[in-house]
Design a binder for these strands. Structure first.
Lengths: 253, 253
DNA sequence: TAGTGGTCTAGACCACGGA
DNA sequence: CCGTGGTCTAGACCACTAA
């Protein structure tokens, strides 16, 4: 036939759309600027709204866009670097750490937490809730699990819960000698409570950082911190922290 | 009215669906088992297929499911821990590292890479492509950028590209003294080339690990590694590496 | 109250894998 | 070839925000 078949691998529309939008963001928009609404954009590109939304979702996942219901879609600033792996051999709650205690409860934890802490099934655990603010933005929410056995001298505190108790638990933790630490990062989706704390909808993508603190040959504390994946880049520096100004991954190929 | 209004905050259908499916996966399915197809599942729960797919997407994002076109949806095994932050003060390509060189080209890089390397705009850079296999699975693809100035004694090599040249560049790199390193982790979506290497569709969620290697007071190499976010948990241990058996994040709350 | 993004539907067709 | 998940459409209604 006379028809040429160049499109041997037809690219999905939303993928092509994402590329076009991405280039437009680089050249025609500046940070914080509001994009046209989804219905107009879809009409302009001649696609259904659902298809446009698929492209926007990808761009939001990559931290290029920010969407807020009732407001609109704006161009996101570059992701902020958030230090996670520095301050070796320091307990949570040490002077100058980036976290702010919010609450504390003491109870027998869920089975998964007990297993990670290697505690007995009936052993009570203090769970401190903390939040992290960087550059004026709430970037992470944390649950810090501390077996009651790790902080035995908590007798003078009568507060059954709340910030006061959280501070007391953290203070007692400093008395132990920290022997080591290991962390893991994985992708997750925000639970309802974390989503509220992070000002996102439930299910929003988050980076979950799980850290075990070791003392006296056992796990003395377990931190599960959820960071906003759209706005954060987690940095693990073992040398001086230098900012990488532009993302080499974005434009490569 | 006599009708009670308990649903003050109506939960989205796909969110409830995700919870139900998640519990079913825990109790009624085992790893590797094939779920009913999407049309049957949607009918069984009385929702449109698109709504069901929204729930499945979330579960896949959390590493609970694996979906393959033409095959079906299966229950995913727990995420594998992949060491990323150990082996301090070791160059890429050192004996025993987990990466396998695939290719190497030498050319003037994209602007973003040049900026991160702090090289001049016209300075050539070796780009080594490597892939990482763990537990028999391709888990990551890497582009390793090395300024030509970091490996000046590359004269005896006549191969213009390919694995041989990659090995030669890595070998030369070992002659420098590594002074430090810093890494960053962020969420991204797989480019077409990485997706093919990782056996995923383009746009699949990945964890992008950017590492700068420092020597002689400058950036001697820059690694951009993309890990499959669905199957990997990146571990950064500064003490012995101990596996966390079950994810404390999954079941909490 | 008007306009935004978020959810949901009931279809259709396509690309891929295996029999 | 058939069955799977992946893409796409053209609507509808809801939840939220700001004026």
């Amino acid at each position: 036939m006379g028809t040429t078949q160049l499109e041997s691998v037809p690219e999905p529309k939303y993928w092509h759309l994402k590329t076009v939008l991405s280039e437009a963001l680089d050249s025609e928009f500046s940070v914080g600027e509001i994009l046209p609404n989804e219905r107009d954009l879809a009409a302009r590109f001649g696609v259904a709204r659902a298809t446009l939304r698929q492209a926007l979702e990808q761009l939001e996942l990559e931290g290029r866009l920010q969407r807020r219901r009732g407001v609109g879609t704006t161009v996101a600033p570059p992701r902020m670097g958030v230090a996670v792996g520095t301050e070796l051999h320091v307990w949570p709650g040490a002077p100058g750490d980036a976290w702010q205690p919010v609450d504390c409860v003491t109870e027998v934890p869920a089975a998964a937490v007990a297993a990670a802490l290697e505690t007995g099934a009936d052993e009570p655990v203090h769970t401190v809730r903390r939040s992290r603010v960087t550059h004026g933005q709430r970037v992470a929410a944390e649950l810090l699990h501390i077996p009651a056995a790790s902080v035995p001298d908590l007798s003078g505190i009568d507060a059954p819960a709340g910030v006061a108790r959280a501070r007391a638990v953290l203070r007692e933790l400093q008395r132990l000698e920290l022997e080591g630490r290991d962390s893991a990062v994985e992708l997750g989706s925000a639970r309802a409570d974390d989503a509220k704390e992070l000002d996102r909808l439930p299910g929003a993508p988050v980076l979950v950082v799980t850290t075990r603190y070791l003392a006296a040959g056992r796990t003395a504390a377990l931190s599960v911190a959820t960071y906003r994946a759209d706005t954060c880049r987690l940095t693990f520096g073992d040398s001086g922290n230098v900012e990488i100004h532009e993302d080499p991954h974005r434009h490569a190929s």
